[in-house]
């Protein structure tokens, strides 16, 4: 990867900065203030608008969109992922601070959905990123998304939402899978 040092994880972080005596309190608090990185990857992002605005008003459950991955807790994969997007998604995910959670919307991340035979859309997201909650649908309605977030909150509350730990522990496995489809880790400069 060489000069892409700034973009992607090169090695496992030495210290996991989560746990300790206040863990339970931390979990309780975290579950009630989930900040979601405002990044829509597929058609599902259209369902996020009513979810986070006044119709379903996810903010009353402590969820809101933030514009930068560094402040976010949750990454929503909202539908199909192309190889090109996957590279950006990995970059976004690795920039987020632990603990961090991934929610996958729709059929596409599970087994390809209607893009199962596409030359450019991945079929199984769990090969490339650790996903905590899967919500199927095409696309899931805001109610289903909120049901998924409720499950995520329960998982965080009980300390079971540890996808981010798995990612760090199995970084080599994930990297290997990612490298199978992403040959070139250079990010282009968008100057055209």
């Amino acid at each position: 990867m060489g000069k892409d040092k700034n973009y992607f994880l090169n090695e496992k972080p030495e210290k996991m900065t989560y746990g300790g005596v206040f863990r339970k309190i931390n979990d309780w608090a975290r579950a009630r203030s989930l900040w979601v990185v405002a990044y829509g990857t597929g058609c599902g992002s259209i369902e996020l608008r009513p979810t986070f605005t006044s119709r379903f008003d996810a903010e009353r459950l402590g969820m809101r969109m933030v514009g930068t991955p560094r402040q976010a807790d949750v990454l929503i994969i909202s539908g199909y992922l192309t190889v090109k997007t996957l590279k950006r998604v990995i970059r976004v995910y690795e920039q987020m601070q632990s603990p961090k959670y991934v929610v996958a919307l729709g059929a596409c991340p599970i087994n390809g959905g209607m893009y199962y035979d596409s030359y450019n859309a991945i079929n199984r997201l769990d090969l490339y990123l650790p996903v905590d909650v899967w919500i199927t649908g095409c696309m899931p309605r805001p109610e289903a998304i909120l049901a998924g977030f409720k499950r995520l909150q329960e998982l965080i509350d009980s300390g079971k939402a540890d996808g981010w730990k798995k990612y760090i522990e199995n970084l080599d496995w994930y990297r290997e899978n990612q490298r199978k489809i992403i040959k070139n880790w250079r990010m282009p400069n968008y100057n055209w």
């Binding site: 769990d126 909650v133 919500i135 109610e143 289903a144 998924g148 079971k160």
Partner: peptide, 12 residues
């Protein structure tokens, strides 16, 4: 019915 949430991707 439209809500189906799971923690593992193999339950669909």
């Amino acid at each position: 019915e439209y809500i189906w949430v799971r923690e593992t991707p193999d339950d669909f």
